[in-house]
């Protein structure tokens, strides 16, 4: 049996209870919405991007602790980063949560995001953790579409959701 405390670490519970950057940004120049239709997780992401730098970021949403904490941790992690740096974080995060129970964790690159490492032991929760990141990806790509966890092949083949 896996330890629930690994999934619901204090950092995760804290970010779920008091999400950071939980606000709409009136001056946002990029927004995207992400939904997980199967369980109802939903987030809207607001970005102020200038010269490829994420100057400000906010989100609003409702859903499970994993999706909301992930969104909160993500906003804190990407604020002030360039698009390229944010992409690198996305890849490191994605590798962590889809890497399987014994996958490597790049704690140096991930920083506080490593608090969500427990997700890799809970395959059905991977998409909860990934939802904000896919939404960020969409917002930065700028298509303005709603991201759904049930569409497209954005998760890698080792994501059990896609099997």
């Amino acid at each position: 049996m896996v330890d629930l405390r690994e999934l619901y670490q204090q950092v995760v519970l804290d970010h779920n209870r008091s999400p950071r950057n939980f606000k709409q940004l009136p001056n946002a120049n990029r927004t995207a919405e992400g939904t997980n239709p199967l369980c109802g997780d939903q987030i809207t992401l607001y970005l102020v991007v200038t010269n490829d730098v994420i100057e400000d970021v906010g989100f609003q949403g409702a859903g499970c602790a994993i999706s909301q904490a992930s969104a909160s941790l993500m906003t804190a992690a990407v604020k002030g980063k360039t698009k390229t740096e944010a992409d690198a974080l996305f890849h490191a995060f994605h590798a962590m949560v889809t890497g399987g129970p014994n996958g490597a964790i790049d704690e140096k690159a991930l920083g506080k995001l490593a608090a969500l490492s427990g997700v890799r032991q809970f395959p059905v929760r991977v998409k909860c953790a990934n939802l904000p990141w896919h939404t960020l990806h969409e917002a930065l790509a700028g298509s303005g579409d709603t991201v759904s966890t049930e569409e497209g092949g954005s998760d890698t083949p080792d994501d059990p959701d896609r099997r």
Binding site: L4, L7, Y8, C39, G63, A65, I66, Q68
Partner: peptide, 23 residues
């Protein structure tokens, strides 16, 4: 209160309890 259904489902599952969560 304060807990999303999905998290309830995951925690119960660890005890072998199968319930449905969602809409």
């Amino acid at each position: 209160e304060g807990v999303h259904a999905h998290d309830i489902g995951t925690i119960l599952d660890q005890s072998g309890i199968a319930i449905r969560t969602g809409h």
